[in-house]
């Protein structure tokens, strides 16, 4: 079994355990603070998934910059891995957010919430990059174009972060790293931490596997090219 696949298994087990703990063990929130206290537990998925998405989009940014400025094949693989992982974790975050929003706000989407929308856009950008790249033959033209969009997408990350803090309309503010004491209960924090670690391991596993896949695809394409040429 490859390194990436081992991390995938480990991360997946961790995520499963997190959800089990979230469902059966984590303390319930105050009924006064939330419309739907049970649905609030979705944040054990939602927050770690958003964290993993930021890791993935960070990888997309580094990979895109590495390709555009250094022409590094390794960086291109990181771009591919980051965009695929960003797409998956972005969808997980948005989807879990919609499920939570439907229960808590009565609507799965709020067009006026900046954080929600910028995160949705980031995910759409990942969809655009992944589908667009798959539609093109591999080459410097497509790599340059999608790497440029990878860089552009990262501009949305600080926008999303700032929006979290200053432009919250409906969306709850950040629950970790706020500097306030007691922003979340200790047991809740423990489950959330387990979730964050599991998602981190899982997404790194996915990116390693994806980078290996891209390398294999390039090797296959090179070999096929040589074979077509009659080696």
């Amino acid at each position: 079994m490859k390194w990436g696949e081992m991390l995938l298994l480990l991360g997946f087990t961790g995520i499963g355990s997190t959800l089990l703990l979230a469902l059966l063990w984590a303390p319930s929130v105050s009924l006064d603070a939330f419309e739907s206290p049970a649905a609030q537990r979705i944040f054990y998925w939602h927050v770690p998934a958003a964290w993993a998405a930021f890791i993935a989009f960070g990888a997309l940014f580094i990979g895109s910059a590495g390709w555009l400025f250094r022409r590094s094949e390794w960086a291109w693989r990181l771009h591919v891995a980051g965009s695929e992982a960003g797409l998956a974790t972005g969808l997980m975050t948005v989807w879990s957010g919609c499920v939570w929003g439907a229960a808590e706000w009565g609507t799965p989407w709020d067009w006026t919430d900046v954080r929600l929308n910028t995160f949705g856009l980031l995910t759409l950008l990942a969809v655009y990059v992944v589908l667009g790249r798959n539609s093109q033959p591999d080459g410097v033209e497509s790599r340059d174009t999608f790497a440029a969009f990878g860089l552009y997408g990262f501009v949305l990350v600080p926008v999303t972060y700032i929006a979290t803090r200053i432009w919250t309309i409906r969306h709850p503010g950040p629950v970790v790293a706020t500097g306030d004491e007691g922003s979340i209960n200790g047991d809740m924090g423990l489950v959330l931490l387990l979730g964050a670690i599991s998602f981190t391991v899982f997404i790194i596993g996915h990116m390693l596997t994806s980078m290996r896949l891209t390398a294999l695809e390039q090797r296959l394409s090179n070999l096929q090219g040589q074979h077509d040429g009659g080696i």
Binding site: L19, L23, A38
Partner: peptide, 11 residues
């Protein structure tokens, strides 16, 4: 309990 079922299905 309804809320927990909703959550379990979502998870």
């Amino acid at each position: 309990m309804e809320g927990m079922t909703y959550l379990a299905v979502a998870y």
